[in-house]
Simulated assay, not measured.
Amino acid sequence: MRTTRPLPAAIALIGVGAVVAVAVWRPWEDSAHAAGGPAEISVSRSQCGQGWTDAKTGRQTLTVHNTGDAAAEVDLVEVGSNKVYGEVEGLGPNTSAPMDVQLGAGRYAIRCLIEDTDAITGPTVTLTGDAKGGPAAVAVTKNDMLPLVKQYETTIVGGVADLAVKTDKLRSDVDAGNLAAARADWLPAHLAYNSLGAAYDAFGDFADQIDGSAGFHPLEKGLWHNASAASLKPIADQLAAAVHGLQADLPNEQVDPNDLGLRAHEIMENALQFELTGENDQGSGTSLNTALANLDGTAKVLAILDPVLKPRYPELTQVKMWEARVRALLTAHRNTPVAQLDQSTREQLNGAVGELLEQLAPVAALCEVRRSS
């Protein structure tokens, strides 16, 4: 399987109601045709970058052909700055793939990342002309991300400890038959989980046991639909056991470095789909509170990614602006069931979250770990 993309691509989110479609937008696509035809460039241990003979500025499609015997990743980089303007991943032997790029004047080269081989950089190609270059970013390496992952994992330890305390209190309420107290304590425990951020994928089966088809949601349904304490006790006990199981297993859990950037977008995408529509609401009417906790999780991820994003993403200020806008709207309407929002408020919320998602979309591509050596 192969993929190709410019870096970073801007992502446009087009929402109709609760349905969100994701489409890649490239600033040069309004032009009727790419400048010139494709040039085939060889990729192998011995021929990296050979064949780039019709180099030009402007938007163009290059064709890279793997003439070697091992799969390869191919980057088009600016010499000196090491910015990546285009990428093809998973290019198998004897296969070709297009690479869409937009290049300004400068010095460029093809970089070949071949299995079991150090990075190989092909001949430098010098371009002149007035065309404006497209989006690009310095590749993020594993060494860039590992300290950030460790920092994030440290915050998760504290977050899960807080979750355990609040879940234990919730379980004690149910075990004592005090369902009024359980209803009051359900939300703080639920928000503690939903503010954790990007670690969900590392939680494995614990994620579903805590906040999937088991755990918080069936407990919420029972608490707000007159279930008996006796019927809710096994659910509360199971939830607390899952949280403590997660806490005990945290030293064995590992957050994938690529998940940090990916989840920054996905957390709020899920909030738009499941919380702002009220789909996840099982009776408590607290979906907007949960969406606010999701936003806290996103903000936590972005703060940790800041050293990587700040030099690579000029629109980071827009991310923070729209994060503040969404926070203000959610704070103003928390504790209000989604069904009770007027149409204007719902449109404002959906629009603001949609805009935030558009600004967050490039984060995953920018923070994806790539080999550079």
Results as ranks from 00 to 15, higher is better:
36 G>T: 08
171 R>M: 04
70 A>Q: 15
47 Q>S: 15
123 P>L: 07
45 R>Y: 00
207 A>S: 13
192 A>E: 14
99 M>S: 07
105 A>K: 13
227 A>T: 01
320 K>E: 13
44 S>H: 02
52 W>H: 04
64 V>W: 01
132 K>H: 10
183 R>D: 12
348 Q>S: 14
49 G>H: 01
258 N>K: 14
197 G>A: 11
251 P>H: 10
299 A>P: 01
322 W>E: 06
332 A>G: 03
62 L>A: 07
173 D>R: 04
115 E>R: 11
106 G>T: 10
269 E>W: 02
299 A>I: 06
116 D>A: 14
296 D>F: 05
60 Q>W: 05
178 N>H: 12
145 M>P: 04
333 H>M: 02
55 A>S: 14
37 G>F: 06
77 V>C: 07
113 L>R: 14
348 Q>F: 01
70 A>Y: 06
220 E>Q: 09
34 A>S: 07
162 D>M: 07
264 A>T: 13
142 K>H: 08
170 L>F: 09
289 N>E: 09
254 Q>N: 14
75 D>G: 00
236 A>Q: 03
230 A>D: 13
344 S>W: 01
304 I>K: 03
234 P>N: 05
290 T>L: 15
9 A>E: 14
6 P>G: 02
232 L>N: 01
24 V>C: 02
331 T>D: 12
232 L>H: 03
164 A>G: 06
280 N>R: 08
370 R>G: 04
136 A>T: 12
189 A>T: 07
64 V>L: 09
261 G>Y: 03
153 E>W: 12
238 Q>W: 00
125 V>I: 15
183 R>S: 13
95 T>D: 07
307 P>R: 09
233 K>A: 12
173 D>C: 13
37 G>M: 07
206 F>H: 11
270 N>K: 13
31 S>A: 12
218 P>K: 10
280 N>M: 02
31 S>W: 07
254 Q>Y: 11
99 M>K: 05
38 P>H: 08
35 A>Q: 08
314 P>S: 15
